[in-house]
């Protein structure tokens, strides 16, 4: 898939970090419409920082992030609000509202942002729950469900308005292989049929191979993107030992104990 035509996300000369600490230094990349874009890297390399910058939760130290042409780094709340209507986010822990049932969690955005009749909103929410295998659990409170089920419900909530871009933070972590494979199929299906764009932070190699159109790998010491390409291209790279180890699931040279 071409990444140059009509990028829906354009990250330009982004320097990210906290206070004086630079975590990512002057990185740039584009994400095309309908692309499943995966961000990988070791612990502490800045994956979550980058994602938080891209969804507008934190501001980068420098650079710009254009979402469908609008800069999310801007101070203008109207612009930020417009951008947020185009994106859905699934956080690593699910972040479901504990005081609401699953149905209320999933329906919330429909009730707030659309003029859908109540039974229509309920049917749409039920269909989203069906897509993640949770139809029939609408009356359950999040605390009554397992971690994996909560995560799937969070994905249903994130995609209830069919956003143009869906950000998923570790969607497969903690899920059984069958559910995880089902989730991968769902992502591919949504990307294909709705040209929904996905930005996914994950460590799951099987998921990366199953869903990713393109992968970027961040490196902690260089604070840069050290590799970019399809999962197969990155797996076959031999010039960067860290990339090779990651994609072949090999231990580091020096094992600490």
């Amino acid at each position: 898939m071409s990444t140059q035509a009509d990028p829906i996300i354009r990250v330009d000369n982004l320097t990210a970090g906290y206070n004086e600490t630079v975590i990512l230094d002057d990185i740039s990349f584009d994400v095309a419409v309908g692309e499943v874009f995966v961000i990988v890297g070791g612990s502490g390399c800045g994956k979550s920082t980058l994602m938080n910058n891209m969804i507008g939760l934190t501001k980068p130290l420098n650079g710009s992030i254009l979402i469908d042409g609008d800069d999310i780094v801007t101070e203008d709340e109207d612009v930020k609000h417009r951008i947020r209507r185009k994106i859905g986010v699934m956080f690593q822990t699910g972040a479901l509202f504990g005081s609401m049932t699953l149905m209320e969690n999933v329906r919330l955005a429909l009730d707030e942002f659309t003029d859908l009749p109540r039974d229509a909103a309920e049917l749409i929410a039920t269909m989203k729950l069906e897509l993640v295998g949770l139809r029939g659990y609408g009356d359950y409170m999040p605390a009554e469900l397992s971690g994996g089920m909560q995560k799937r419900a969070a994905i249903a909530r994130a995609m209830v308005l069919d956003p143009q871009i869906l950000f998923l933070d570790e969607p497969s972590a903690g899920l059984d292989p069958v559910t995880s494979a089902g989730l991968d199929a769902l992502i591919r299906n949504l990307a294909k049929t709705l040209t929904m764009t996905f930005v996914i932070v994950t460590h799951e190699l099987a998921s990366i191979y199953a869903v990713a159109d393109r992968v970027i790998m961040l490196e902690k010491d260089l604070k840069k993107i050290v590799a970019e390409g399809t999962p197969q291209q990155l797996r076959d790279r031999t010039d960067n030992p860290w990339v090779a180890r990651f994609f072949h699931r090999q231990p580091p040279e020096k094992v600490g104990y």
């Binding site: 229509a120 049917l123 749409i124 269909m127 069919d162």
Partner: peptide
Amino acid sequence: CDGSGVALLFWLRL
């Protein structure tokens, strides 16, 4: 036609 549109068609079926 996004998920809401599919829901409308599915609702007709229901």
